[in-house]
């Protein structure tokens, strides 16, 4: 079982952060005081974060109509709608990203001691940072998949679509999450909170997507809008486009 563990750099641009601050449709540039808060917290997160990634490639042993069973890993991809995304796949890349415990601790501290705006901005930047880290792992995996003449599926995470979050523990076990300090709460949530787990399938054929990659905050872990838990709460400006692309 080969698991790649990577220490990743964190070079986050403000453009990557804005979508995570729920800025909404307000016009014009950000007021100077908000901009300054973003600068301060971005610097602090860049210094404090210890972004790490884990990557493991598993062969698929068997695919039934409602589950994907992997070779030599306890993780099961389960749910008929989720499974449908992987029917043409021969392998699955498992990936996990985390910013480390320090960020969670600092956020908790800010919530106690600083204003709500500080905690909110800090939280938004940290979310953008873990997304950025996941994107790097995604790109590394996709590069390997394409170079092996397969086609990557979109990234898919437990808790999205009909793949229950209850599989989170198996996920962490299958990727040796403890190597990057990852654990799961009794309610199946990742600890540290600023962490992501996801799978990418190695398909033999190119795949259809129901939407183009949105520009701002990326759609996470779903190939089609109907599998996204956000549903009508989706804030993406591109949401309407999702349905219009064949």
């Amino acid at each position: 079982m080969k698991i790649n563990i990577l220490n990743l750099p964190l070079i986050l641009s403000k453009e990557e952060i804005y979508p995570f601050l729920n800025l909404g449709p307000a016009p014009g540039s950000l007021p100077a005081n908000i901009d300054k808060l973003i600068d301060t917290h971005l610097r602090s997160i860049t210094h404090l974060a210890k972004p790490q990634g884990l990557i493991r490639v598993c062969s698929i042993r068997r695919i039934t109509p409602d589950r994907v069973i992997l070779d030599d890993a306890s993780l099961v991809i389960e749910g008929p709608r989720t499974t449908a995304h992987f029917v043409n796949c021969e392998k699955i890349t498992l990936l996990a990203a985390t910013l480390g415990r320090g960020i969670d601790e600092r956020l908790a501290e800010l919530q106690q001691t600083a204003g709500a705006a500080d905690a909110f901005i800090y939280n938004g930047i940290a979310s953008a940072a873990v997304e950025h880290t996941t994107e790097i792992l995604d790109a590394i995996s996709v590069r390997d998949i394409r170079r092996s003449s397969y086609y990557p599926t979109a990234r898919f995470s437990p808790g999205y679509g009909d793949w229950s979050l209850e599989h989170q523990q198996q996920f962490i076990d299958s990727i040796s999450g403890e190597k990057a300090g990852l654990a799961v709460t009794s309610h199946h949530l990742l600890q540290p909170v600023k962490s992501v787990t996801a799978v990418i399938g190695w398909s033999k054929v190119p795949l259809e997507r129901s939407y183009d990659q949105p520009r701002g905050k990326p759609c996470q872990g779903t190939l089609t809008c109907r599998d996204c838990s956000l549903g009508e709460n989706c804030l993406s400006k591109h949401r309407d486009n999702h349905y219009s692309i064949p």
Partner: peptide, 20 residues
Amino acid sequence: HFADGKAYLPQLMLAGDAAK
């Protein structure tokens, strides 16, 4: 202003912190 899309959420929160 926030509801009308004339102010950003962090501005709203910063104003909230000042009020607090």
